[in-house]
Amino acid sequence: MWAQKKQKRADATSAPWLLTFADLLSLVLTFFVLVFSMNTVTFESWKAVVHTMSEEFNPLRPTVDPIPHDAPASLMTRNVAGLNLSYLQSLLSRQLKQMPLFQDAAVYRRGDSVVVSLPASLMFERKKAVLAPDAARAMRQLAGALVQIRNRMQIAAHTDGAPISNGLFRSNWELSMTRARVVAGALADSGYLQPITVLGYADTRNAELSQALSANSRIEWAERIDIVLINERRGQSAYDIF
């Protein structure tokens, strides 16, 4: 009899400890479930939950309806115009006539820009990207003319469709980009310290050769360096290299 009472008393004292342990396990399980649900929540599901809770707990809250902005893109970005393009074309034509290597360069208008096209054969060996000594000197003269111009500038290199067999470049894309960077670097070394955008087009723009280029020498002009001066004041952009 006394042993049964002692057993009942022991069971009574151990029951609260088991309940506490069970509650602790439940809390730990709940915690890990919450962590898992927070890590795997999707935006749409969470958006539906937030909307439902907002409607239930604050039905009188003010709503905000987004209205699309109808202003044209030209009003949202301010692009300060550079030098007048007609004046710029005339100025560069006179400057290039004074440079023996670039006397035959083509200067023409294309949309909102002035393009100075220089045959790559005057500056580089066939399918190479090392600037010739005469071209380096001419680049220094050209930099002296361009440094006074406030327009944003791009340098775009073009090649013909002939494959590269000298092993120096993997494709005409790489060759054109390297040539554009070399010309930009030569201008920067000569004192043109403003940002320059460099582009390599390989042979993808040869069908769009301007009428300003000689129709009898399209093979020669296919490999060319275009210095493009845009009707915007120069400034930083995502593709500025130098």
Rank of each mutant, 00 (worst) to 15 (best):
A157L: 04
P16G: 09
M153R: 15
L25F: 05
R224N: 02
A145R: 03
Y108T: 02
K47C: 02
Q236A: 15
P133C: 12
S121Y: 11
L91S: 08
V107G: 01
S37H: 14
S54V: 03
A222Y: 05
S14V: 11
T159G: 05
N172M: 04
A132G: 09
T40L: 02
P62T: 06
A10Y: 12
R110G: 05
L101F: 01
M38T: 09
N231K: 14
F169P: 05
L168R: 15
A106N: 00
A186D: 00
R109S: 10
Y239V: 11
A71Y: 13
E174R: 02
A136C: 03
G200V: 14
V49R: 02
Q148I: 12
F102C: 00
S26K: 12
D203R: 12
A136V: 03
F57Y: 13
S214I: 00
L122E: 01
R94M: 13
N216S: 04
Y239N: 11
Y201I: 03
V228I: 15
A207L: 11
L24R: 09
L213H: 01
H158V: 02
Q236G: 10
N206I: 06
P72A: 15
A212P: 07
I230C: 13
M153T: 13
H51Q: 14
T30F: 09
N206K: 11
P68Q: 04
E125G: 08
P59I: 04
L91A: 07
L168T: 08
M123L: 09
T159I: 05
